[in-house]
């Protein structure tokens, strides 16, 4: 094998595999009506629907126990939810656990409990409806049921952006 032929082979490798690239379908975007969500709760009996929270600003969060940034967001959103509710802001967090084995989600919450509602969707129907392409993805749904913000990934500093958006929505409410 001639050494000088290697660069062309190196170049060839990604080109070939790039053929695979197919972009995902368009996502549920800001301004769209939030697709309906009706799911069993993760830790307790009974199901809940997104529509049950109409009239409140909802932070709808798709998460899994195996996703490190998802786990960073849970305690932060729990603190924000409790603080805003104490201030009288009509705000709720609805988290949808997408672990294929719901036990994994339950185990995580036993260790780090949260006060908000956690639903279970091991089949992944709701993230498919919302065209989620990365974990975590969250949606801020206004009191009118319209998506006001779509957010992918989670870093600590994102919390302020999310809170600002919530306060903006709350400010526009009657």
């Amino acid at each position: 094998m001639k050494i000088n032929q290697i660069p062309s082979i190196l170049a060839f490798l990604p080109v070939l595999c790039l053929v695979l690239i197919v972009q995902g379908a368009s996502a549920a975007e800001t301004g769209d009506t939030a697709p309906a969500v009706q799911l069993p709760q993760l830790q307790v009996d009974g199901s809940m629907a997104l529509a049950d929270f109409r009239g409140r600003i909802v932070y709808l969060d798709f998460w899994a126990s195996w996703c490190p940034p998802c786990l960073v967001s849970m305690p932060i959103m729990n603190e924000m939810r409790n603080r805003l509710q104490a201030q009288g802001v009509p705000f709720e967090v609805v988290a949808v656990n997408v672990d294929s084995d719901p036990e994994d989600g339950i185990d995580f919450l036993l260790d780090k409990p949260v006060d908000f509602i956690v639903l279970s969707d091991p089949e992944g129907r709701s993230p498919a409806d919302y065209k989620v392409v990365g974990m975590p993805t969250s949606f801020l749904v206004g009191a009118d049921g319209v998506i006001a913000m779509r957010h992918q990934g989670f870093r600590r500093s994102d919390a302020q952006t999310i809170e600002n958006e919530i306060m903006k929505l709350a400010g526009g409410m009657p």
Binding site: I9, L16, C17, P127
Partner: peptide, 24 residues
Amino acid sequence: LLLPCSVMLSGCQPVQAWERGVLA
């Protein structure tokens, strides 16, 4: 080099973001 790529092309199934628990 072609071999693994063709395997990928024929064998790949779209794996959604929420289906990557095993891979993680």
